[in-house]
Design a protein around this nucleic acid. Structure first.
Lengths: 147, 147
DNA sequence: CGGGTATAGTTGACTACGCAAGCAACTCTA
DNA sequence: TAGAGTTGCTTGCGTAGTCAACTATACCCG
């Protein structure tokens, strides 16, 4: 129960703090950043919109809205699937790759320093381990940034 | 970094799941529930709006909006402060107390079973410990439901 | 006392979602 | 090969929350 309350609070505060920085420095929302990141780690920089939704813990409609913005910004583009006319892939553009690279440096730094400010390396590791057991952890395509 | 990603994902998924139940069974949003809870644990069942905002990780305006709803539902009422005309307390009503009691039983049960489904007791304890070190953990007035 | 600054709270405009409904396109079953 | 059901995606509408601007009260210092 304490765990629950703290999970909520820790996420809310850290997210708020980091989102502000990301927005200020690169004009990206957290969700947008994560979308770019997830795409960059995917086969060919593309993903079905449904899969993207799952990875971002969003509903399909949320993805549609999110991608509206990213497409308008030219960071992502739509690519049709030739074996199934229903699906459209979200494809990372060159601009998207670049944007992500610019942003990721500063962002991962912020994340890291935020955590290291409060926890030791082994504790962070332990935390990741425990959180990984909760629902929402990915089975494959695990989000796992370079180091 | 993995810790970060997982913190986001774990919170998003668990929150979504539990919020649905709470809404369906008692017509309360997670935030509303937590507000009632925090108030119930406070001196006299009341709190300055600013303090409430801090505890809920919300902005003052968010609190105003939230309380609009709770006041309309008669679960909370405004009480003026006689030493400082600027402040208005949010005061839990009898109806609010009752509502909270109804909801808390089922809700804490859901939370507990969600966690116990994935983690052992000692792991939960450990998780709470680690999360408590991150920013957002309360120094006083700790959110800490009866067991 | 009077003016500057800080603090509590509200409001309007906006964003980011979720949900329910809908339309295509695919697949399965007879 | 014609439904019937399923899946991928979008759209309209509602809600929760933010930010910026504002009002009103409180405090502080000459």
């Amino acid at each position: 129960m304490r765990a629950w309350a703290r999970l909520m609070r820790a996420q809310a505060t850290t997210k708020r703090e980091l989102a502000a920085g990301l927005q200020a420095q690169h004009g990206l929302s957290m969700t947008a950043y994560e979308a770019l990141y997830v795409l960059s780690r995917s086969e060919g920089g593309r993903l079905k919109r449904v899969e993207l939704a799952e990875r971002l813990v969003l509903t399909p409609s949320g993805v549609t809205r999110l991608l509206e913005g990213l497409e308008a910004a030219g960071l992502v583009e739509r690519v049709a699937c030739d074996t199934d006319l229903r699906v459209t892939y979200a494809q990372l553009t060159d601009a998207g790759v670049e944007k992500l690279e610019q942003a990721s440096c500063g962002h991962t730094g912020s994340v890291r320093s935020l955590f290291e400010e409060h926890l030791g390396d082994d504790e962070i590791e332990q935390l990741a381990e425990l959180l990984g057991k909760l629902p929402g952890a990915l089975d494959e395509g695990e989000v796992c940034p370079r180091d």
